[in-house]
Design a protein around this nucleic acid. Structure first.
Lengths: 193, 193
DNA sequence: ACCTGAACACCGTTCAAGT
DNA sequence: ACCTGAACACCGTTCAAGT
């Protein structure tokens, strides 16, 4: 990439970060180009789709979640690791209104520039879930897609001001629903009906 | 209302029903006016905001859910009534992409034409929840807003094609999370109301 | 190679002018 | 009363023309 092009690329990304933080993932691309002081065509040359811009903007954050998931897999108990991942996923999409909708769409759209990242994220959660299930710490009747669905639904709710006061509580409820109570050593199994 | 105005009003509503069923709650209002064969100003005269149009379109459905909730309160067990209400809420927002977002926003926006309906819906669910809680059939640590948050999150997920295959399962999981297991017969009697 | 911005096809919303 | 549609201020996206 030519030096002047690289400069435009980086500057667009910097401006886009601010605009999208303020206006959400559906922010006006024209506005981004305007604020960056470049022609709208320059934005489209560097980022042919909105998803490409989001992907470039969030690649580090995505990588951060997946790599931390790997660390958690080594360093934490299975249930604590899974809970941490859930928290990170909600945090990732917080302050990026509309991002969760874009990611959800991208999950099954192989053409989307966000597709690969979303599949990786689902995989990182699925691994933590599988480990917790293998240890009897997470309910066995959900898979990685169910897990991502639950966290996406919570992330969406987290973007709705009407439910701002409810999300933390609902998040805890969902965590409890995913996790199985640790079987106490001396107690018999819960009585069958 | 003058006869010609009434005719336009009704026709707009009929056309809007089809367009919104196809394109979702964010459908182009210009498109609605065009397909109805009236000037865009006529649409705005009858429905000053998009929410006003949605409200007119869905009033009967809203009323249906709240009145059926009252019936359920009389005719059904508390837990079955609550589960039915949850199913009806998800069904209500299904086939109306984007409606749940509009309703969620309206819940805390007193200016919205959808505000009153959304508050009524929350109230109808809250009553069923309270009855179930009083009978020990629903977990006591959630309120009407939490319940609406859960159902809204599920309704949003239901609009996402990526999770089409997961929603039914997740819906069952959420129902189970809300409901408490029925106390075994020989155990203590349900506390008197 | 890369940048520019006019051009095109859309929006939502308002309001003066018509009936 | 009510209807109309031009007008205004925006979009996303493309692409010929410039450097």
């Amino acid at each position: 990439m030519r030096a002047d092009a690289k400069k435009n690329y980086d500057h667009l990304l910097e401006i886009a970060r601010g605009v999208i933080a303020e206006q959400g993932a559906e922010a006006s691309l024209r506005d981004v180009a305007r604020k960056a002081g470049v022609g709208i065509g320059t934005l489209y040359r560097h980022f042919p789709t909105r998803e490409a811009l989001l992907e470039a903007l969030l690649r580090k954050s995505f990588d951060g979640v997946t790599s931390r998931a790997s660390e958690l897999e080594q360093s934490c108990s299975a249930d604590a690791a899974l809970a941490s991942w859930l928290r990170e996923m909600v945090a990732l999409t917080h302050n990026h209104r509309g991002l969760i909708a874009a990611m959800t769409t991208a999950l099954t759209d192989e053409q989307s520039a966000l597709h690969a990242s979303c599949v990786l994220l689902r995989g990182s959660g699925a691994r933590l879930l599988a480990r917790a299930q293998a240890e009897g710490k997470a309910r066995p009747d959900i898979d990685g897609t169910d897990l991502l669905g639950l966290v996406s639904a919570l992330a969406w709710l987290n973007d709705q001001p009407s439910f701002a006061d409810s999300v933390a509580h609902l998040f805890d409820i969902i965590i409890d629903t995913i996790m199985l109570p640790r079987a106490s050593p001396e107690a018999a199994r819960t009585p069958a009906a």
